[in-house]
Design a protein around this nucleic acid. Structure first.
Lengths: 106, 106
DNA sequence: TCTATTGTTCTATAACTATCGAACTACATA
DNA sequence: TATGTAGTTCGATAGTTATAGAACAATAGA
């Protein structure tokens, strides 16, 4: 694993809005999550991983284009995978990348 | 722990050069390290945590002012503590912050 | 078919970051 | 005291990032 891959992951998580988006998806996707830091948005259930984008636009005070950009950054870093089928925009956490983070500093 | 604290830590680690500096100090400071990813510089022992700055200037192809800036960023994020006494510039890893990273996503 | 909704892409812009070199301060040592 | 070494601070600059809005394409529903 290259150093640059790590810095890429950390860069994706270095923006507060983007981290909020990631954590919202993470907490809903991973069984046993929520034990960690609680970053829930005001309405915890407002951003299900299905229709993630749609709902996120209503929860986070940012334009659609900016949110689209943040989703793309999270994907580029390999943190999430997003799929769009018709009106359905769904996200999954990429567990491989999550494990890389977990193994960092071990 | 605020979301913004996490993004601040990740921001400090998002630059490849700065991550390299951090890992070099980390691997020498923490007993049991090296089990994680190996980011050693070309000459692993070239940058002891005592005289860290001095030696780092010889290992990393960046100006002194840039390296000074990176050390400051790592300090601002709470990742390391640096102390300068006369000619001696020594660094220690801030284990509290390391533990915050370790607990992230748990 | 018309309209509204959703997400993407493009363009612009303001803010931030990485980097350097120069000037500076503090210290050590000849 | 003069000189060299170490680290900081400042100013400049090039590159990157976060953000918004407009235009667009695809889709869903009236």
């Amino acid at each position: 694993m290259e150093l640059s891959n790590y810095s890429k992951i950390f860069k994706a998580l270095s923006n507060e809005q983007r981290l909020k988006i990631f954590m919202s998806i993470y907490e809903q996707s991973i069984k046993g999550a929520k034990k960690g830091p609680d970053f829930s948005l005001e309405k915890p259930s407002c951003c299900p991983i299905e229709r993630a984008f749609t709902k996120m636009c209503k929860c986070i005070k940012l334009s659609r284009s900016t949110i689209s950009h943040h989703f793309k950054e999270l994907q580029n870093a390999g943190l999430i995978t997003c799929k769009r089928e018709g009106q359905m925009y769904s996200c999954t956490i990429n567990e491989d990348t999550v494990n890389i983070i977990k193994d960092f500093l071990r």
